[in-house]
């Protein structure tokens, strides 16, 4: 699993707050003064807000062309916009899920060319000229399911289903790179996709069935 954009300075356990204070520093100052001017992003995630045209942190929307599921889509994008937000809030492709919005869970996995990528940690501008595939782009023109999707149905892969699109995209990428994986190969490939229901065994059954039937 590769991640296009990742800022190692952002320690998720101690996110920076407005004005450059760390959370720990802020609390210290709070305890010292007994009062606090709130900082909105204190406990917030790092995702950009949907539906914005211009923000206080700067950046103007630019109209760009993206290749999404084999079609050219024209979309206005701000510089700091993540691909997950563009897909979900501007292109209506809500099959890509946001579980953490910080590169931990893999629910937002999509393909850039043939590589599985966390779309929550990828800037939309960085994928211009690349082929983006989401779960909505897997079914054949006649509506039949992709072999991985079909295998996940046959093996009853999902439980709650929230991580499923990400699990499927990583599996599709694996089978493109390695059409005959061992179960251990699949386990390693999918290690960046969490499932809190613990459906790992069933998902691996799905990948192995898809490999057999493809």
């Amino acid at each position: 699993m590769s991640v296009v954009t990742f800022d190692p300075e952002k320690d998720p356990a101690n996110p920076p707050v407005g004005g450059g204070l760390s959370r720990r520093e802020l609390i210290k100052s709070v305890i010292a003064t007994g009062a606090v001017v709130s900082a909105g992003s204190l406990l917030g995630g790092c995702g950009s807000g949907p539906g914005e045209t211009q923000t206080a942190v700067g950046g103007v929307e630019r109209l760009i062309s993206l290749n999404i599921n084999g079609k050219v889509r024209r979309v206005d994008v701000v510089p700091h916009e993540t691909l997950a937000m563009t897909l979900r809030y501007k292109l209506g492709l809500t099959g890509t899920k946001l579980g953490c919005d910080r590169g931990e869970c893999g629910a937002c996995t999509i393909l850039i060319d043939d590589t599985p990528i966390y779309s929550c940690s990828t800037l939309t501008h960085s994928v211009r000229g690349r082929a983006v595939t989401t779960v909505e782009g897997l079914q054949a023109a006649d509506g039949s399911l992709h072999p991985v999707q079909q295998a996940f149905v046959d093996e009853l892969g999902p439980q709650c289903g929230f991580c499923t699109p990400g699990q499927i995209m990583t599996s599709v990428a694996l089978l493109r790179a390695n059409p005959n994986p061992t179960r251990e190969d699949a386990r390693q490939a999918l290690a960046g996709n969490l499932c809190r229901c613990g459906a790992y065994d069933h998902y691996l059954n799905g990948v192995m069935r898809a490999a057999q039937e493809a």
């Binding site: 407005g18 709130s38 900082a39 909105g40 992003s41 917030g44 995702g47 950009s48 807000g49 949907p50 539906g51 914005e52 923000t55 206080a56 942190v57």
Partner: peptide, 12 residues
């Protein structure tokens, strides 16, 4: 927008 919410929270 959400970003505007967050900008506004800085002013509360």
């Amino acid at each position: 927008s959400e970003e505007l919410c967050m900008d506004a929270m800085e002013k509360v």
